[in-house]
Write a protein that binds this DNA or RNA. Structure first.
Lengths: 215, 215
DNA sequence: AATGAAAGTGAGTAATCACTCACTACACGA
DNA sequence: TCGTGTAGTGAGTGATTACTCACTTTCATT
């Protein structure tokens, strides 16, 4: 059961106690939702894979959708975790990062490890966001309240230092995020079997981005 | 029925004749698959929305999956349509495009119009590719056979002209595609309600990309 | 008008769906 | 040792599923 430490991290397992069977259910649900999708996965299949009676699922989760949300919500928060940390912006302004490039590199490597570790849960989040309006709204709310404002401050900080082009901050934020997310999506979703040299490709990607954004 | 011309274009309706009821079925299926997903949409719902008996669907499509493929396959080909055109690479080599930037701008605007026009069908393709291995393999096959090789020739052409950085062509291709796809995904999927100035934002995006890739 | 093929129909079917409920197993404090 | 609460069970339920089939309608060709 050691390989499941990541699940406890993801679920913030300190606050809520999970029995072993409950962990089995969540693990099975994540794997099957990621493979076949939420709608195409039946609760009886989840129960079978988890080694549990079907009724046990509904003891812990009122509905199948509840089970989905128990997976999606913590994944959503972990997706933007760096920006939720209080000291994050302070680090930038107190010259923890001297250049935007260092900041981008830190975020990039951090999110690379995150995607690598939690890939199945992230698949579920992104796939089901397309079908469930409530999940999409939650994502947009979190992004606007916790990511966008802080990101904007950081970008404007480096623009004032004359490091970044005088583009609208929205454009710089979008270019930065789609460049990082584009690599991660290509690397882990679209072409996971390609013989990647991750270190080098990340470095090349950052160089392209910085050349594109510099003043 | 005039607004449906795009459906005929998408389906290559010259080769196969479609009755009106059959077009209704495809239209309803595209819309509902895009909204709720393939697995969460029942054939009885499709029939109701199309104003058709449920049996009529199965007269034309042996299974529900067949109906999905009838939507997905032509969309897949249209997605990479520019690269399927024979004269496409020739245009580049015969100085139809003097600079890589002009080539990128042409592809960008072309795909922008494509996504804008066929958005629901494209949603279906991308959403269901995650769940159906056969669709994903078809996509990868088409990309490798018809897009990658031509794209690589074009990139190497402009590298020899000293216009593009001496990066691996794979990296330049990936950066170009994820930059374009990243904008289109943000524009049409993630934040369709944001007050976009498309012309200007496309131009900014191209400038960032070109600065990032230039020698 | 007769014919035949294709298009369209809708009641019917077995399987599967999410979910319920009466029940058992077991831990723990009194 | 008893009572109580929580975790777990699995047969059962009505609704819904993809799909079938015997049938009717439409329509071009003779």
């Amino acid at each position: 059961m050691d390989e499941r430490k990541w699940l406890f991290d993801l679920l913030n397992a300190d606050e809520h106690q999970f029995s072993e069977k409950q962990v089995n259910i969540l693990q099975a649900a994540i794997d099957m939702f990621a493979e076949k999708g939420y709608a195409a996965t039946s609760t009886s299949e989840i129960a079978k894979r988890a080694g549990v009676a079907e009724g046990t699922i509904f003891r812990h989760y009122k509905t199948k959708k509840d089970l989905l949300l128990a997976i999606v919500k913590p994944t959503l928060f972990q997706s933007v975790a760096p920006f939720l940390a209080k000291k994050f912006v302070k680090d930038v302004f107190e010259d923890e990062y001297e250049h935007y490039e260092q900041f981008v590199r830190a975020v990039f490597k951090n999110r690379y490890e995150f995607v690598k570790t939690y890939l199945p849960a992230i698949r579920v989040l992104w796939q089901e966001m397309a079908f469930h309006g409530d999940i999409k709204i939650q994502f947009q709310t979190i992004f606007i309240n916790h990511v966008y404002d802080k990101f904007k401050q950081i970008v404007e900080h480096f623009q004032q230092k004359g490091e970044l082009a005088p583009l609208p901050p929205e454009t710089i934020i979008r270019m930065t995020i789609t460049t990082i997310a584009g690599f991660l999506a290509t690397r882990f979703l679209i072409m996971p079997d390609y013989p990647w040299d991750d270190e080098q490709e990340i470095e090349r990607t950052i160089q392209c981005l910085m050349n594109g954004l510099k003043a």
